[in-house]
Simulated scan of single mutants.
Amino acid sequence: MTDRSRPDLDDTTVEALGKLSEALETVEQARGFLYAFHQLSGKADILLGEAVDGLREAGATELADDLERELVGRNVVADRWTFQVVEDYDAGYWSTFRAFDARAREELAGGDRHVLEARMKQRERTPGAPRQEAGPALDEQPPS
């Protein structure tokens, strides 16, 4: 198929697929924030360990001992470090969401992605104007 806007699909289907795609993009953003949370929490724990060493070296051994016992290496969520939260999110919610998005696109649009956006591009571009070409065609897209 050469027309990315898929004129063969009805507007309701295209809009619903567009909403599903937008929802998945939001989940992808959340996943990125979750990975940032994971990395920042890990960095904070390393810095905390360094602070504990410094406090101990400065003679504040009771404070250092309390911090080490109560906070260094502490679970951020009940029974989990951040890598476990990330793994649960990926294995459960994120992968399931992606699978349903792929299924919906396959069942309703032959696997084509971003049909709503392609229609928007068709509406908003100026045909014949430089840098406003319609392409590339669907059959020129890399596999999803």
Rank of each mutant, 00 (worst) to 15 (best):
W94I: 14
Y93I: 04
G110H: 08
G18Y: 01
A51V: 11
E87L: 08
A16L: 15
R103C: 06
R6K: 09
R125N: 12
E87M: 07
E68R: 12
G49A: 12
H114E: 03
L108T: 00
T61W: 03
Q132C: 13
S95F: 03
A134F: 08
W81Y: 07
S144L: 09
R31P: 04
E25Q: 03
F97A: 11
A64G: 13
R119L: 10
Q39V: 13
G49T: 06
S95N: 06
A16E: 06
S21V: 02
L48Y: 08
R105A: 03
A30K: 01
L108F: 00
A58N: 01
R98K: 15
L63T: 15
G54N: 10
P136D: 12
R31V: 11
E133M: 05
A137G: 14
L108A: 00
E133H: 09
E50G: 09
R80L: 07
E22V: 02
P143F: 10
F97I: 02
D3H: 12
T61S: 14
V52G: 12
E107P: 05
R131Y: 15
R4V: 11
A30G: 02
T13V: 15
W94N: 09
G18H: 01
E106V: 04
Q122F: 07
R56C: 13
K121Y: 14
T61H: 12
A134K: 15
T61I: 10
R69E: 05
F33P: 03
V27W: 00
A23P: 00
A51I: 13
Y89L: 10
Q122M: 08
R31C: 06
A36K: 06
D79W: 00
T2H: 12
A129K: 04
Q29K: 05
D112K: 02
Q141V: 13
D66Y: 01
R74I: 06
D139A: 09
Y35V: 15
Y93P: 00
L71D: 10
A109H: 00
L40M: 10
P7S: 03
A134R: 14
G42N: 09
A23I: 01
G111A: 12
T96F: 02
D101K: 14
D8T: 04
V76A: 00
A99T: 06
H114K: 09
A64E: 12
D112Y: 04
P136E: 08
P142W: 08
G32W: 11
Q122P: 10
K43A: 14
L55V: 15
A44W: 04
E25H: 04
V52Y: 12
Y89A: 13
L40I: 11
Q39D: 15
Q132N: 13
G73R: 01
V86Y: 02
D8V: 07
D66S: 01
E107H: 04
T61L: 11
A16P: 04
H114R: 08
H114A: 08
A78K: 04
T2N: 11
E87G: 01
S5V: 10
T26Q: 06
D112F: 05
R125F: 10
A91N: 14
V86S: 03
V86E: 04
L116Q: 10
R31K: 08
V76Q: 00
A36N: 06
R123W: 13
D53Q: 12
R105S: 01
L17P: 00
T2G: 14
T61N: 13
V77L: 12
F100I: 05
M120E: 11
F100K: 06
P127M: 02
F97N: 02
G92R: 15
N75A: 05
